[in-house]
Amino acid sequence: MSDQNSFTRIVLFILLIVSLFAIAFVLGSLLGYDQNAWVQTKGPTNGFINSLGIDPTNPDILYATDEEGRIFKTTDKGNTWKEVSAGEIMHTFSDELIVSPHDPENIWSVDGVANVFETTNGGSTWSQIIDPYGDGFRFGSVYAIAPAPSDPDTIYAFKNGFGIFKSIDGGGSWLFLDPSEVDYSYSIAVDPTNPDIVYSGYNPKQSQDWAMVRQTTDGGDSWRTSLMVPHSNGITSVAIDPNNPETIYAGSRGEVGEIYKSVDRGNSWSKLNEHFTMCTVWGQPQLIVDPNDTSIAYVATWLGGTWKTTDEGETWTLLRDAPVSSTALSLNLVNSNIIYSADRTEPKLWKTTN
Rank of each mutant, 00 (worst) to 15 (best):
G136A: 03
E314K: 14
K351D: 07
G53W: 07
T75W: 07
S187L: 02
E83C: 04
T225M: 14
A86F: 15
E312N: 14
A328Q: 02
E83A: 01
V334F: 08
I296C: 00
F48C: 04
L30K: 13
Q286C: 09
A37P: 02
N243T: 10
G136R: 02
Y249R: 00
I188A: 14
L30A: 11
I61L: 07
W269P: 11
T301C: 04
S237L: 09
N335F: 03
G254P: 08
P132D: 10
N121D: 15
T74V: 00
W108F: 15
L12S: 15
Y340I: 07
F276V: 09
S94K: 02
V39I: 15
T247K: 05
G283D: 12
M212P: 06
L227D: 08
I17V: 15
N194D: 14
A211Y: 11
D264R: 03
Q40T: 10
G172A: 11
S29L: 11
F13Y: 13
D151M: 06
I49F: 01
P149V: 03
V26D: 09
N5H: 08
D55C: 05
Q208Y: 03
S232Q: 05
S187W: 07
H275F: 15
G234T: 09
V229D: 04
S94V: 11
I61H: 10
D321V: 09
W108P: 05
N243M: 06
K166T: 07
S222V: 10
D293N: 07
W108Q: 04
G136S: 06
N203V: 14
G257A: 10
I129S: 00
F176A: 05
W282L: 14
T352D: 07
G32F: 02
F176E: 03
L177E: 04
